[in-house]
């Protein structure tokens, strides 16, 4: 485990050195990413500026959800880029090369890419998160902060899991499925607001199928002391584990895909 982490570090160092040869492009990419996500944030702010609140949630409260969701996604985007471009690896036949190396394939796919340009979303999400934590008086050592950070990691795992599933599809069909954008980018769009404002179907989907609710809403409600409790309180405190569990399941599915690939040789 520790050894794998070290090797992952070597991969990342290599990827960074490769990307830094095109420094200007990386900086511009990060700025652009910051701009695109920043504009979305401006839209959210503008709505609160006009309407004041959304079903009893203030901007500062929603900002916590927004910050958590975006930091989670940004982390997953930075680490999980390899899965998002995985279909190309299969199409070109270069996946065989990964099979020839004495490491897990999911590990290698994750390690091969490291997308620095997505720090734009990370910076923006962190800024909003800090603002929210300060506004709520939560930026101090304590169980709440641990839960927030843990849930962000769990959320990143959930997003990573979706990226893994998306990549797994490439084992079976070369037609890439845009549909997964619904879960990742649609998911972050959805999770920026309290899950309680949505219809039942959407809420259940993001709780039971893809457990994004546990990335911010479920723990957020507890941390903020809001009435929209979901299940017993210990469940909220276990939120980080849900994401990790989901990621584990997705990795099992990946294995099924890999086995299929190795038996069809396509």
């Amino acid at each position: 485990m520790l050894e794998s982490l070290r090797v992952y570090g070597c991969y990342v160092a290599v990827a960074l050195r490769g990307q830094l040869q095109y420094r200007g492009s990386v900086v511009m990419g990060a700025l652009g990413n910051l701009m695109v996500t920043g504009v979305e944030l401006f839209g959210l702010w503008a709505l609160f500026d006009r309407f004041g609140q959304i079903q009893g949630w203030t901007l500062a409260e929603v900002a916590l959800l927004y910050g958590m969701a975006n930091v989670s996604l940004a982390l997953a985007e930075i680490v999980g880029r390899g899965f998002r471009v995985f279909d190309q690896l299969v199409k070109s036949g270069d996946f065989d090369r990964l099979l020839l190396r004495p490491r897990g394939t999911a590990f290698q796919v994750a390690a091969q890419h490291f997308e620095l340009a997505r720090v734009g979303r990370l910076i923006q999400g962190l800024a909003v998160l800090v603002y929210a934590l300060v506004a709520q008086g939560l930026l101090r050592p304590g169980a709440e902060l641990v839960l927030v950070v843990g849930s962000i990691v769990g959320g990143a795992c959930t997003f990573m899991g979706v990226f893994v599933l998306q990549a797994t599809v490439a084992f079976f069909t070369i037609e890439s499925l845009e549909l997964f954008a619904i879960i990742t980018y649609g998911g972050v769009e959805t999770a920026q607001y309290p899950l309680s404002i949505y219809g039942d179907g959407l809420r259940r989907f993001f709780t039971w199928v893809v457990p994004l609710a546990f990335a911010n809403f479920v723990p957020g409600v507890v941390v903020l002391g809001r009435p929209e409790r979901f299940g017993p309180e210990w469940l909220a405190w276990a939120s980080p584990l849900v994401g990790v569990g989901f990621f584990w399941v997705c990795l099992r599915v990946w294995r099924v895909g890999e086995r299929y690939y190795r038996s069809t040789g396509s």
């Binding site: 065989d96 099979l99 020839l100 086995r259 190795r262 038996s263 040789g265």
Partner: peptide, 11 residues
């Protein structure tokens, strides 16, 4: 195909 089997890529 043979080489892929021998190399462990293909079942």
């Amino acid at each position: 195909t043979t080489v892929k089997v021998l190399a462990g890529i293909l079942v």
